[in-house]
Design a protein around this nucleic acid. Structure first.
Length: 348
DNA sequence: AAGTCCATCAACCGCCCGCGA
DNA sequence: CTCGCGGGCGGTTGATGGACT
């Protein structure tokens, strides 16, 4: 089907609107409604194409448009909705009264995207950025340290370095985590060796790569996401650990949040709320909520609700059991549990 | 003061979809 | 069923103004 010509008329004005044009457009619409946008310019005595008129009206002149800075609440909502809907700006705009899709899109591209990146979250997938990114930054990071660039660090550098350091710390945590899993006799139905994969052997010269792979796999496990297939590693056996994240205290409390927003409840998995909350904190999300994972998230959520009570209690017990196993460790579970608690506390 | 860089956002472009003939 | 049209959407551009050198 051929594209319909829109502004093919010669001599139609383009570019910024003048106050006179705005006035004409507003007065016409107030009196007659917009009707057919194509006919509007002629009827309103405007030398513009209908499309341009529609855009001007919906994005700028409409009386119910809210101008001014986005509130934190709006920011959170946008981030969340984006994690659910992706770049469906118009759909997102319908949930934010008074904001236009264009405005939200611009705000996303100029502010929120950067904000998430700074937090180490991929704005596209809403997942933590891979540690490969960090490793690729490592040489420059170390060079910067060695060269004494830190003597007068900019805030920008400081933030980056802090974020990178945090990510590296997490690799260590993950390493600790897997060690704990391997030595623990917890009742979790997880096979650490299957997590590790046959090729993994800590301590050899491929340690970093292995750790990264391990990190990703563990993230997936902790997330309860199905994203393992995204990795180049062969799929591993299904893990009952999916219950863990689905039913952690974070998610229990998030359901309350979910209930507050009836308008969007239908499309929002509990998982994605966690994403918003963690995304707005300095703690990167442990929850997968990327648009491409929405389906799986929803499915998970569905299964979650089906097994709510039993799964919930078992996972709580698992948490307690795990915590019990690690009372005297210096890092690892406590950190992770504290992170989750931290998110939890900041939820309410 | 002038030049350059960068962030912001209004506006445009081109594609897609739904609907009616 | 096909086609054409109108409207809507997401991506991109470019003008503008402020910050920085």
């Amino acid at each position: 089907m051929g594209r319909s010509p829109c502004c093919d008329e010669i001599g139609v004005k383009k570019g910024p609107w003048t106050p006179e044009e705005d006035k004409k457009l507003v007065e016409y619409i107030q009196e007659h409604g917009h009707g057919s946008w194509r006919n509007l310019p002629k009827n309103a005595d405007l030398n513009r194409c209908g499309k341009s008129c529609r855009l001007r009206w919906t994005n700028y002149l409409r009386p119910d448009i809210k101008r001014g800075k986005f509130t934190e609440e709006e920011e959170r909502l946008i981030i969340h909705l984006h994690s659910v809907l992706g770049n469906k700006w118009s759909a997102i705009a319908t949930r934010l009264s008074g904001r236009t899709d264009n405005e939200i899109k611009n705000y996303w591209n100029t502010h929120l995207k950067k904000k998430l990146l700074l937090m180490g979250i991929d704005p596209v997938t809403h997942r933590r950025r891979t540690n490969l990114d960090i490793l690729s930054n490592l040489p420059s990071l170390l060079a910067a340290v060695n060269l004494g660039n830190l003597a007068a660090p900019s805030w920008d550098n400081a933030l980056r370095i802090q974020a990178d350091a945090a990510q590296l710390a997490k690799v260590q945590i993950m390493q600790s985590l897997i060690q704990q899993l391997m030595t623990s006799n917890s009742s979790l139905s997880i096979d650490p060796m299957s997590l590790l994969g046959s090729s993994l052997s800590l301590g050899n010269n491929n340690q970093f790569g292995d750790l990264l792979q391990l990190n990703r796999q563990l993230e997936a496990v902790l997330n309860g996401s199905l994203s393992l297939a995204q990795d180049s590693t062969p799929p591993i056996a299904p893990l009952n650990l999916s219950n863990l994240s689905d039913n952690s205290m974070v998610f229990n409390n998030l359901q309350g949040y979910s209930e507050q927003e009836n308008a969007s409840k239908d499309q929002m998995s509990v998982n994605t709320y966690a994403n918003v909350l963690t995304a707005t904190s300095t703690t990167p999300s442990l929850v997968s909520a990327s648009p491409e994972n929405v389906v799986s998230d929803k499915m998970q959520d569905q299964s979650h609700s089906n097994n709510d009570v039993s799964a919930n209690s078992s996972s709580s017990a698992q948490f307690e059991a795990w915590e019990g196993h690690n009372n005297d460790d210096d890092f690892g579970w406590k950190d992770i549990l504290e992170q989750i608690s931290w998110s939890n506390n900041n939820t309410l």
